[in-house]
Amino acid sequence: MTSTSLALVADIGGTNTRVALADGPQVHLETVARFKNAEHGGIGDVIARYLAQTGTRSEAISGTCVAMAGPVHDGVGTLTNLDWRIDKAVLGDALSTDRVAVLNDLQAQGHAIGRIAEADLTVAVPGPAAAEHAAALVIGLGTGFNACPVFDTDMGRFVPPSEAGHVSLPTSITELHPLLDKLVDGGGYPSVEEVLSGRGVSHLHAALHGEQAEPAAILDRIGAGEARAEATGALFVRILGDVAGNLTLTHLPFGGVYLVGGVTRAFLPHLARFGFAEAFHNKGRFSDFMAQFSVSVVTDDYAALTGCAGHLSHI
């Protein structure tokens, strides 16, 4: 790594933060370290510990890009599920650099598209080959839910922010109708994130069966073929296909749809048998139109770090 291109990139999730060093758009995976958020007072503490742990001098860092699970506005973001404030100016001062970016985590995933190895992509819904500058769409399921389009322009890549997880659940799935009052957020609103997220798996299972269970346990029971868990998994996948189809019609990502996040990866073995493709394509008179869009699952757990490095290398 050269002294002029050394960058620090970080991916702040709801539970853990991962930090790494990058040389231009290339993340050096051997430098990735994971820190528990609960053990730190903020991103500044995490970065200080990382620098001390790796023996990296702050003045050697020529730029930094942080991805975070929450909305970002004018370089300032607050995590959705953690009381941390991420401030672009403060990060720049802490690392003595003015080349700083703060991205929503899905924006970072969007900047990773095109830099992900084929081995880390699994096709869930096949589609035609994409034109070189066709728009793409990233949909993330993890601690929360979000989505953002990806546009390659003459001025560079543009990945606008979004809060797609807080739109309402689809009315087209009639099985949801009697469950809606059990699938509301803290404001009494049945948002997509209350189902299509880690906690959403548990919410949906409880709404269907009146049984409390952790997401990992439900997924284990799906893998074992247990009937109640299978019913939860099948409805979850149908909702995901329907919502992904809605977002696809909104953005027309002829460059492909990319599903990311830990919950997505956990459901990958079950997408086909629970009818994801059928739910994705089921758009009435536009069902045939939906055949123009491919859907792939990103299995690279470090894609957000790659996106941070790629974005930073162009600013």
Score class of each variant (00 low, 15 high):
M1Y: 09
S3I: 07
T4A: 15
I12G: 01
L21T: 03
E30C: 01
K36V: 00
G42N: 04
G44L: 10
A48N: 12
Y50S: 08
L51K: 11
T56G: 12
C65Q: 02
M68W: 09
G70L: 10
P71G: 01
P71I: 04
T80D: 11
N81M: 12
L91V: 04
A94I: 08
L95E: 02
S96A: 10
T97N: 12
N104H: 12
Q107T: 08
A112W: 03
A112L: 12
A112D: 11
D120S: 05
L121Q: 04
V125C: 13
V125E: 06
A130M: 09
A131S: 11
H133I: 12
A136Q: 14
L137P: 00
T143H: 03
F145Q: 10
N146G: 02
A147W: 15
V150F: 02
D152L: 13
M155P: 14
M155W: 15
F158D: 05
P160E: 09
A164F: 06
S168N: 14
L169F: 06
T171L: 14
G186P: 00
S191I: 07
E193G: 01
V195H: 08
G198N: 03
G200Q: 05
S202R: 08
H205S: 00
A213P: 01
A213S: 05
E214I: 15
P215R: 10
A216L: 11
I218K: 06
A224E: 06
E230F: 00
T232L: 12
G233K: 01
R238C: 10
T248Q: 04
T248L: 07
L252W: 15
G255P: 06
A266P: 06
H270K: 04
E278G: 07
A279R: 07
F280A: 04
K283Y: 14
R285T: 12
D288V: 11
L312F: 05
L312V: 07
S313I: 08
I315S: 11
